[in-house]
Design a binder for these strands. Structure first.
Length: 221
DNA sequence: GCGACAG
DNA sequence: ATCTTGTCGC
Protein backbone atom coordinates (compact mmCIF):
# COMPACT_ATOMS: atom_id res chain seq x y z
CA UNK A 1 0.00 0.00 0.00
CA UNK A 2 1.15 3.49 -0.84
CA UNK A 3 1.30 6.09 1.92
CA UNK A 4 2.26 9.75 1.85
CA UNK A 5 5.37 10.52 3.90
CA UNK A 6 5.35 13.56 6.14
CA UNK A 7 2.21 15.22 4.74
CA UNK A 8 2.68 18.98 4.79
CA UNK A 9 0.16 21.85 4.63
CA UNK A 10 -0.52 22.74 1.04
CA UNK A 11 0.94 26.16 0.18
CA UNK A 12 -1.40 29.05 -0.56
CA UNK A 13 1.02 31.34 -2.37
CA UNK A 14 3.72 31.00 -5.00
CA UNK A 15 6.35 32.11 -2.49
CA UNK A 16 5.35 29.37 -0.05
CA UNK A 17 5.25 26.81 -2.85
CA UNK A 18 8.78 27.66 -4.02
CA UNK A 19 10.05 27.53 -0.45
CA UNK A 20 8.52 24.08 -0.02
CA UNK A 21 10.22 22.86 -3.19
CA UNK A 22 13.57 24.04 -1.86
CA UNK A 23 12.92 22.33 1.46
CA UNK A 24 11.91 18.99 -0.10
CA UNK A 25 14.57 19.03 -2.82
CA UNK A 26 17.31 17.49 -0.59
CA UNK A 27 15.07 14.45 0.00
CA UNK A 28 15.48 13.31 -3.60
CA UNK A 29 17.54 10.11 -3.55
CA UNK A 30 19.57 8.65 -6.36
CA UNK A 31 20.21 5.31 -4.66
CA UNK A 32 17.59 2.76 -3.74
CA UNK A 33 17.05 2.05 -7.44
CA UNK A 34 14.78 -1.00 -7.91
CA UNK A 35 16.58 -4.10 -9.13
CA UNK A 36 13.54 -5.46 -10.89
CA UNK A 37 10.70 -3.44 -12.33
CA UNK A 38 7.55 -5.34 -13.16
CA UNK A 39 4.77 -2.83 -12.50
CA UNK A 40 4.93 0.71 -13.90
CA UNK A 41 2.28 3.29 -13.01
CA UNK A 42 1.06 5.94 -15.45
CA UNK A 43 -0.23 9.23 -14.01
CA UNK A 44 -2.24 11.87 -15.82
CA UNK A 45 -4.67 14.69 -15.00
CA UNK A 46 -7.58 15.71 -17.21
CA UNK A 47 -8.91 19.28 -17.01
CA UNK A 48 -12.68 19.69 -17.28
CA UNK A 49 -13.33 23.19 -18.52
CA UNK A 50 -17.06 23.42 -17.80
CA UNK A 51 -17.09 21.81 -14.35
CA UNK A 52 -13.88 23.51 -13.12
CA UNK A 53 -12.60 20.16 -11.91
CA UNK A 54 -9.54 17.97 -12.25
CA UNK A 55 -9.71 14.25 -12.93
CA UNK A 56 -6.59 12.36 -11.82
CA UNK A 57 -6.12 8.93 -13.38
CA UNK A 58 -3.53 6.29 -12.54
CA UNK A 59 -2.99 2.99 -14.35
CA UNK A 60 -0.61 0.17 -13.44
CA UNK A 61 0.91 -1.75 -16.33
CA UNK A 62 2.62 -5.13 -16.29
CA UNK A 63 5.83 -4.60 -18.25
CA UNK A 64 5.74 -8.20 -19.45
CA UNK A 65 2.92 -7.42 -21.89
CA UNK A 66 1.97 -3.76 -21.17
CA UNK A 67 -1.46 -4.85 -19.97
CA UNK A 68 -3.34 -2.68 -17.46
CA UNK A 69 -3.60 -4.64 -14.21
CA UNK A 70 -4.91 -1.92 -11.87
CA UNK A 71 -6.27 1.64 -11.99
CA UNK A 72 -7.80 4.44 -9.94
CA UNK A 73 -9.59 7.71 -10.75
CA UNK A 74 -10.12 10.72 -8.45
CA UNK A 75 -12.03 13.95 -9.15
CA UNK A 76 -11.04 17.08 -7.28
CA UNK A 77 -11.20 20.86 -7.29
CA UNK A 78 -7.94 22.56 -8.25
CA UNK A 79 -6.13 23.78 -5.14
CA UNK A 80 -3.56 25.87 -6.97
CA UNK A 81 -3.46 27.74 -10.32
CA UNK A 82 -1.27 26.55 -13.16
CA UNK A 83 2.09 28.25 -12.78
CA UNK A 84 5.11 26.99 -14.75
CA UNK A 85 7.54 25.55 -12.22
CA UNK A 86 4.76 24.99 -9.66
CA UNK A 87 2.90 22.38 -11.65
CA UNK A 88 2.93 19.82 -8.83
CA UNK A 89 0.88 22.00 -6.54
CA UNK A 90 -1.99 21.73 -9.00
CA UNK A 91 -1.76 18.07 -10.00
CA UNK A 92 -0.20 16.26 -7.03
CA UNK A 93 -3.15 16.31 -4.58
CA UNK A 94 -5.61 14.23 -6.65
CA UNK A 95 -2.77 12.06 -7.98
CA UNK A 96 -1.68 11.20 -4.43
CA UNK A 97 -5.29 10.31 -3.58
CA UNK A 98 -5.51 8.03 -6.60
CA UNK A 99 -2.17 6.37 -5.83
CA UNK A 100 -3.38 5.47 -2.35
CA UNK A 101 -6.37 3.67 -3.83
CA UNK A 102 -4.31 1.25 -5.88
CA UNK A 103 -4.38 -2.45 -5.03
CA UNK A 104 -1.08 -3.26 -6.72
CA UNK A 105 1.95 -1.28 -5.58
CA UNK A 106 3.87 -0.03 -8.63
CA UNK A 107 7.67 -0.33 -8.78
CA UNK A 108 7.99 3.05 -10.51
CA UNK A 109 5.84 6.12 -11.21
CA UNK A 110 5.94 7.40 -14.80
CA UNK A 111 4.84 11.03 -14.50
CA UNK A 112 3.48 13.30 -17.21
CA UNK A 113 5.93 16.19 -16.81
CA UNK A 114 9.44 16.78 -15.55
CA UNK A 115 11.56 15.43 -12.74
CA UNK A 116 14.96 17.09 -12.26
CA UNK A 117 14.46 19.05 -15.50
CA UNK A 118 12.96 21.89 -13.50
CA UNK A 119 14.10 25.41 -12.46
CA UNK A 120 14.72 24.25 -8.87
CA UNK A 121 15.43 20.63 -9.89
CA UNK A 122 12.19 19.52 -8.25
CA UNK A 123 9.49 18.85 -10.82
CA UNK A 124 6.30 16.82 -10.40
CA UNK A 125 8.09 13.47 -10.65
CA UNK A 126 10.51 14.40 -7.85
CA UNK A 127 7.67 15.72 -5.70
CA UNK A 128 5.55 12.58 -6.04
CA UNK A 129 8.58 10.33 -5.62
CA UNK A 130 9.68 12.04 -2.40
CA UNK A 131 6.19 12.15 -0.90
CA UNK A 132 5.58 8.43 -1.54
CA UNK A 133 9.23 7.31 -1.41
CA UNK A 134 8.55 5.40 -4.64
CA UNK A 135 10.96 5.38 -7.56
CA UNK A 136 9.76 7.86 -10.18
CA UNK A 137 10.65 9.39 -13.53
CA UNK A 138 9.31 12.31 -15.56
CA UNK A 139 8.41 12.13 -19.25
CA UNK A 140 7.53 15.53 -20.67
CA UNK A 141 6.17 16.49 -24.08
CA UNK A 142 7.74 19.96 -23.92
CA UNK A 143 11.23 20.72 -22.56
CA UNK A 144 11.98 23.40 -20.02
CA UNK A 145 15.69 23.35 -20.91
CA UNK A 146 17.81 23.37 -24.07
CA UNK A 147 18.85 20.49 -26.29
CA UNK A 148 20.26 19.69 -29.69
CA UNK A 149 17.90 17.54 -31.76
CA UNK A 150 18.80 13.84 -31.45
CA UNK A 151 19.24 11.56 -34.48
CA UNK A 152 16.10 10.55 -36.31
CA UNK A 153 16.05 6.90 -35.19
CA UNK A 154 14.09 5.49 -32.28
CA UNK A 155 16.43 5.28 -29.30
CA UNK A 156 18.60 8.23 -30.33
CA UNK A 157 19.06 10.86 -27.65
CA UNK A 158 20.90 14.06 -26.69
CA UNK A 159 21.46 15.69 -23.29
CA UNK A 160 18.89 18.14 -21.96
CA UNK A 161 20.51 21.12 -20.24
CA UNK A 162 19.25 23.76 -17.84
CA UNK A 163 21.70 26.45 -16.85
CA UNK A 164 24.93 24.44 -16.87
CA UNK A 165 23.43 21.21 -15.53
CA UNK A 166 22.63 18.07 -17.48
CA UNK A 167 19.11 17.47 -16.18
CA UNK A 168 17.72 14.82 -18.54
CA UNK A 169 17.57 13.64 -22.13
CA UNK A 170 15.68 14.37 -25.32
CA UNK A 171 14.80 10.81 -26.34
CA UNK A 172 13.47 9.79 -29.74
CA UNK A 173 10.81 7.15 -29.06
CA UNK A 174 9.55 6.97 -32.68
CA UNK A 175 11.66 7.37 -35.79
CA UNK A 176 11.12 10.78 -37.34
CA UNK A 177 8.84 12.02 -34.56
CA UNK A 178 9.53 14.78 -32.02
CA UNK A 179 11.40 13.40 -29.00
CA UNK A 180 10.11 13.21 -25.43
CA UNK A 181 12.01 14.72 -22.50
CA UNK A 182 13.04 12.24 -19.84
CA UNK A 183 14.37 13.12 -16.42
CA UNK A 184 14.86 11.32 -13.12
CA UNK A 185 12.37 11.86 -10.33
CA UNK A 186 13.49 9.79 -7.33
CA UNK A 187 15.49 6.57 -6.75
CA UNK A 188 16.17 5.98 -10.44
CA UNK A 189 18.97 6.44 -12.96
CA UNK A 190 18.66 8.41 -16.17
CA UNK A 191 19.81 5.45 -18.27
CA UNK A 192 17.26 3.12 -16.65
CA UNK A 193 14.58 5.77 -17.12
CA UNK A 194 15.30 5.95 -20.85
CA UNK A 195 15.34 2.15 -21.13
CA UNK A 196 11.97 2.03 -19.39
CA UNK A 197 10.49 4.69 -21.66
CA UNK A 198 11.63 2.75 -24.72
CA UNK A 199 10.00 -0.40 -23.32
CA UNK A 200 6.80 1.62 -22.86
CA UNK A 201 6.83 3.03 -26.42
CA UNK A 202 6.58 0.07 -28.83
CA UNK A 203 4.12 1.98 -31.01
CA UNK A 204 3.55 5.59 -30.05
CA UNK A 205 5.60 8.65 -29.10
CA UNK A 206 4.25 8.72 -25.53
CA UNK A 207 4.58 5.85 -23.02
CA UNK A 208 1.69 3.39 -22.76
CA UNK A 209 1.48 4.31 -19.08
CA UNK A 210 0.66 7.92 -19.94
CA UNK A 211 -1.69 6.93 -22.76
CA UNK A 212 -3.75 4.49 -20.70
CA UNK A 213 -4.01 6.93 -17.80
CA UNK A 214 -5.05 9.70 -20.21
CA UNK A 215 -7.75 7.50 -21.75
CA UNK A 216 -9.04 6.50 -18.34
CA UNK A 217 -9.26 10.12 -17.20
CA UNK A 218 -11.24 11.34 -20.18
CA UNK A 219 -13.64 8.41 -20.12
CA UNK A 220 -14.41 8.95 -16.44
CA UNK A 221 -17.68 10.78 -15.75
C1' DG B 1 12.63 45.95 -18.25
C1' DC B 2 11.80 41.76 -21.60
C1' DG B 3 11.19 37.12 -22.87
C1' DA B 4 10.57 32.38 -21.50
C1' DC B 5 7.66 29.41 -19.02
C1' DA B 6 6.08 21.22 -17.57
C1' DG B 7 0.22 20.62 -17.91
C1' DA C 1 -4.37 22.23 -20.89
C1' DT C 2 -7.25 23.45 -25.44
C1' DC C 3 -8.09 24.68 -30.62
C1' DT C 4 -7.37 23.32 -35.43
C1' DT C 5 -5.51 20.85 -39.99
C1' DG C 6 -3.50 17.18 -42.24
C1' DT C 7 -1.50 12.51 -41.84
C1' DC C 8 -0.82 8.05 -39.99
C1' DG C 9 -1.82 3.84 -37.42
C1' DC C 10 -5.25 0.20 -36.42
Amino acid sequence: MITVRDPHPWPATETEAEALQRRLRPRVRFDGVPEEVRYAAGLDVDYREDSDELVAAVTVLDLADLSVVDSAVVRDRPRFPYVPGLFAFREAPPLLDALQRLTIDPDVLVCDGQGLAHPRRFGLACHLGVLTDLPSIGVGKTPMGHYDPPGQNRGDWTPLHMDDDEVGRALRTRTGVKPVFVSVGHRYTLQAACDLVLTLTPTYRLPETTRTADHLGRQAE
